[in-house]
Design a protein around this nucleic acid. Structure first.
Lengths: 344, 344
DNA sequence: TATATTTGCTTAATCGATTAAACAAATATA
DNA sequence: TATATTTGTTTAATCGATTAAGCAAATATA
């Protein structure tokens, strides 16, 4: 029925009365094998539909040509796009990727790391879950001696390569933009303080507010999980304030969407009464009404750089990994939710 | 520096003056190994942070405990959710999954299949790319003798397990609903005719239209790639008709969104002038204004069933795979875009 | 012609875990 | 006491590909 027996080097060798070594070398175009032999081997290999057993060669060579990728989730455009570009670059160099999602859970992330190490990946490219504070499992990757590259959500303490945007500067851009729009009381719904990137956004927000001589009111700065639901909650909270803000900068697009919905339910004019800026440039920000201003993080470039960084490490394995940051400039996409001029 | 040498069975054996065989068996709790030995082995294994080499055991056992998953893309809520549930079920049984995306490209899909077979996966769970017509690569999976399970986008001709919703019945539900809303001229922007599920939706649409004695006008039935952009195009096309439809059923949510935007740009009242129904119940259908009615495909259940089906095959490997369909009932989520009563 | 080099292949070890088969020692049964 | 069985372990083969080392034949160099 189904030709279940996979053909091996041995099968080819038997047919041609050769050793498996000769066959192996022939398939690798070794210079010490004659042209006729190579030709014959390749012919038989094709006829028998020979597929090399990856497990065997990986075991022998101590190299699996697989790279693990860990993302918090795949159903966001940012991560999906990063992954796609990592794959594109690595495929060209003969690597394949294994994607795992942590679902923002620390436990799931640890499991993912174990799975990937278990599968003997040659390296790991990861963006950390929101929950993750304990770096023990990431140290495990390092101690395994394979390259670890972080993007977007990273940690300086790990002393590995990192690719991301300048979150601090992004906050400045946003505040600057809102000030230009005439906003005088700018709130920030930020991510978790303990996550480096969100902390940087918060710092950027604070410094930019100070720089422009605006009120840095503690009730204007909220910490959020940045889900759509929590965006709603935090916006409702802001609306209960004695003096409402006239602009809200939200560190994630999903939360921004939730916030926008609350504003609309309360018949608040966006952007004129309250302007809104999100972060991440998820496709839906351009779909909803009003469209939401947001920060483009250059996911494609991040993916490509992460992959290239891995390849560099493979090329020179003796170079010890250290903290090596590649910071990209983010871009503010101004849309209706914060563009008063275009509406008035 | 980094303890690069991974500890192997041999290391443990040397320390305890045992054979690797005894160590291997001790770790597997073999009944022929004494309690003391087991204890000693496990203690040393823990101290040395022993991690079994998956490649070696997979090679020897002829089983990798890896399952390949192929999806058209990961940045859709449907596929992301299916994948997540597949993973959940399989992890419990000691399997790990490798996700690959075809990006709706036939070539990429073939590459994915090669990668997965190369990685010696124990089975493949897939949803086919839109482009895919040639089934040669899928036959390759079958001839390899490993289980192949299809979901959502499948093909009867492959004679394997399939999990999905009843697309034909879903179309009936939608048409029925629109008729109830008083619509008399219902258009359908469908997917590619050659893709089975879209074909079924088209057949369902046609039959339901006939059943209700409505006009089955060829200009009301359009074939689309179902991207947001193409949704726009096709809706613009419908608006140029002499007699415009009073309802449009679109076989994908992204295309439905594009269509909605066109309607809004043309100041057409949705749902009263033209009602709209999408397909897939992507989260954004509940986010946009008006919210879009859509079909919920029970992604979680599909994922779970797909994984369970794989496990069943593993449990009884001698059972030959045949066409075995598990069809779930879909659910119509009525929202503002097609609910005239709630608005008037 | 004698020696050196190249060519083309084979032998055998290796990667690390698993497992069938063998075997000695301890214990049980007749 | 002699034989059978159980217990606990070792030996050795195996999975399939790779590769260092070896070797004979062909060709080149002195």
């Amino acid at each position: 029925m189904s030709n279940k027996k996979k053909t091996t080097l041995k099968d080819i060798a038997n047919i041609l009365k050769l050793s498996t070594a000769a066959v192996s070398k022939a398939l690798q175009d070794d210079s010490r094998i004659s042209a006729k032999t190579k030709e014959a081997v390749k012919k038989v290999a094709k006829e028998l539909n020979y597929q090399p057993n990856h497990l065997a060669s990986a075991l022998r060579k101590g190299k699996s040509n697989l790279v693990g990728v860990i993302v918090p989730r795949t159903n966001s455009n940012f991560f999906s796009s990063v992954v796609q570009n990592i794959e594109e670059v690595l495929n060209k160099d003969g690597y394949n990727i294994i994607i795992t999602q942590s679902n923002e859970s620390y436990k799931k992330e640890c499991d993912s790391i174990d799975t990937l190490l278990f599968t003997q990946v040659d390296g790991i490219i990861a963006s950390m879950a929101n929950e993750t504070i304990n770096l023990e499992y990431y140290e495990k990757i390092k101690s395994r001696g394979i390259p670890l590259i972080l993007f977007d959500r990273g940690e300086n303490d790990l002393n590995v390569d990192y690719i991301g945007i300048d979150d601090y500067a992004s906050s400045h851009m946003i505040v600057e933009h809102l000030v230009e729009q005439g906003c005088k009381r700018i709130a920030h719904i930020g991510g978790y303080q303990h996550t480096r990137i969100f902390n940087n956004r918060i710092r950027g927000y604070k410094d930019a507010i100070k720089k422009h001589g605006l009120p840095l009111d503690s009730e204007l700065l909220l910490e959020s999980s940045l889900t759509q639901e929590d965006g709603r909650k935090k916006m409702e909270q802001l609306l209960t304030l004695g003096t409402r803000p006239d602009a809200v900068y939200i560190a994630g697009d999903y939360a921004a969407l939730g916030a926008l919905q609350v504003l609309q339910e309360n018949a608040i004019d966006v952007p004129n009464e309250i302007a809104l800026v999100g972060f991440g440039n998820e496709p839906f920000t351009a779909m909803v009404s009003p469209t939401i201003s947001s920060i483009e993080q250059h996911s494609m470039e991040i993916g490509r750089l992460a992959a290239q960084t891995f390849l560099e490490h493979v090329a020179s394995p003796d170079v010890k990994q250290t903290l090596n940051k590649k910071i990209l400039n983010a871009e503010l996409i101004v849309r209706d939710s914060s563009n008063k001029k275009s509406l008035s």
